[in-house]
Design a protein around this nucleic acid. Structure first.
Lengths: 326, 326
DNA sequence: TTATTCTCAGGAAACGTTTCATGACTATCT
DNA sequence: AGATAGTCATGAAACGTTTCCTGAGAATAA
């Protein structure tokens, strides 16, 4: 029963009006009342729906936004996807999803495919500066590529500062900053900068450890073992640049017989929540994922693109997750 | 520097050939070698890319598949999204993502939007029978709507049986089947059927508790408390229809001072993994998400649609996650 | 050599919209 | 009353492809 889709021409014939009139009705433009009624009746009767390809061909506009993310495996990414979808949907845009991991980590190929698809814009969390052509508006998440590529991110620096302040308020006297990540620089690196600056300002001694491209917290075991005095760690506070790391550090400390938060308090970053009860995995600096998503969409769809800032940092907040005293 | 996209006409002029020839080159059809070379050079020179809207207008084909999921919050859904994306990408299809939650739970509206978008097919995990028009191929996940709507699901019944067999093998003498979910029936309901049948076949007494539309496991507290004898539960094995429930039940049992897996062994269903270490939250029956995704895509893109089965159940497996003895 | 078939590039029509120029008609002004 | 301005539906052109028909030339057969 694959009845052929009816076209504007059919509607026009049915309603006894001209093609252009139907078009104006469909697009909600000024049309005489009598005509509007007739056309709407015909549309209803024929079950007419606009053909987005014909429209796209004429208007060069599609109402589709490409969203490029690394994967769906990390809650931060999937929740970004969710929130971006929400924001887009509210504005009657569709979301085309591209996952770079599924492309064997080849972001270039991904972007090439995006470009082929004539989307109205791109929201991308990518590591390489792949989107250097400016024919399609691009908003970058968490990665600053330069003044002509708008970037939306959490206030990572401020988050680091906040973590330092909290640890200080919780009574920490000597703290440690832990960082693992990839070599490609990103906005998120500022977390550690903020934390260390914060500690300095507060007069709290802070050690700084960084490892590139490792997974797990095992690389820190040595350091911990060397800094035990009478079974106690010389640190009473640890800042981790991600919640994932914080979780792993906590496990590592458990192995070493160090209690959290009694002996050491840990603050992570991201604000990842358990899927089963919505609680934080650890005490954390919460990234405002919903705001990030909404802001990206906002900036992308903004009429006046000259008004778009090149970097926009959104405020983070403190989330208690049991790895600090409060 | 928004240089206008060049068209086939431009390429034809540049190469000194006819429009149709360019089209044939682009689509990899039979073309004389000399012409092909010229055209390819021109394409390269002008950076020509086909306009998907013009093509879509002519061919009524888009290479876009709509994927409808409830949300991205549950790992099962996000991992489905990930795997479907992977399968689609491998075949040069794009994925347009629709989340019904973001639409205030209104699946109808979602499907309406999908239909407007002229996609080549739909893969949907929906609860209502919303897709009754057969103009666009539809594959349903986990929900059987009738013989003309192909459905892909895990072998839920077999999974229930498997859980029963495992609990038996692990020495359980009296077990409990727990179910929570929504009133709308789904393939997943067969989990409990399979479990109970399995218990009967094995001669293990099994109680059966079901609650509609509750969240959390608290509703089972009463039942547990009434079935304590000397601080011990009369059950030594519990089957939960989802991992989420299993996790919540474990916590509930912990509150009641019952040890898992020493006193009671628990098996969940889904095979959800922790994002931080990839381990299961609980011992579980694993749904083959990757196979489900691949199968959906396969069936959707199959040339001969008369060959598509109306229900296809994929084998599940047992995953140890610490809530059983092994 | 001439007639017949085959191969393959050229060119035009069509897909379903949007938009622009045209002209019919009404309303306002002098 | 006649001229001018304003409103608004009409119809055609254009968007960038695909596809089908035509015909030119090559290859084969007689």
């Amino acid at each position: 029963m694959k009845k052929a889709m009816s076209t504007m021409k059919d509607v026009a014939r049915e309603a006894g009006v001209a093609l252009g009139t139907v078009s104006r009705v469909v697009n909600g433009q000024q049309v005489g009342e009598e005509y509007r009624v007739k056309v709407e009746a015909a549309i209803e009767k024929l079950g007419y729906q606009v053909n987005p390809y014909a429209r796209g061909l004429k208007t060069n506009k599609t109402n589709i936004i490409a969203v490029i993310l690394p994967s769906m495996e990390h809650p931060y990414f999937s929740s970004l996807a969710q929130q971006i979808n929400l924001s887009l949907t509210r504005r009657d845009y569709q979301m085309m999803l591209f996952l770079t991991d599924s492309h064997h980590n080849r972001e270039d190929e991904c972007v090439r495919m995006v470009r082929q698809n004539k989307v109205d814009g791109i929201i991308g969390l990518t590591y390489n500066a792949v989107h250097l052509s400016d024919d399609i508006p691009f908003i970058s998440i968490d990665r600053y590529f330069g003044p002509n590529v708008p970037c939306v991110a959490s206030d990572n620096y401020g988050g680091g500062r906040l973590a330092a302040e909290r640890l200080a308020a919780l009574g920490c006297k000597k703290v440690l900053s832990l960082w693992t990540g990839s070599a490609t620089p990103g906005e998120a690196d500022k977390r550690v900068d903020g934390f260390i600056t914060g500690c300095n300002l507060l007069g709290i001694p802070c050690d700084d450890l960084r490892y590139v491209d490792v997974d797990g917290a095992d690389v820190f075991r040595d350091h911990f073992q060397k800094h035990l005095i009478g079974g106690k760690l010389i640190y009473d506070g640890i800042f981790c640049n991600t919640d994932l790391l914080a979780i792993q550090v906590r496990e590592l400390l458990a192995e070493l017989g160090i209690r959290v938060p009694e002996d050491v308090q840990i603050i992570g970053f991201d604000g990842i929540r358990r899927f089963d009860n919505g609680k934080f995995y650890c005490t954390t600096i919460i990234q405002p994922v919903d705001k990030i998503a909404e802001t990206c969409v906002d900036m992308l769809l903004r009429e006046d693109r000259s008004q778009v800032p090149s970097l926009l940092c959104l405020p983070v907040s403190y989330g208690f997750g049991g790895t600090t005293k409060e």
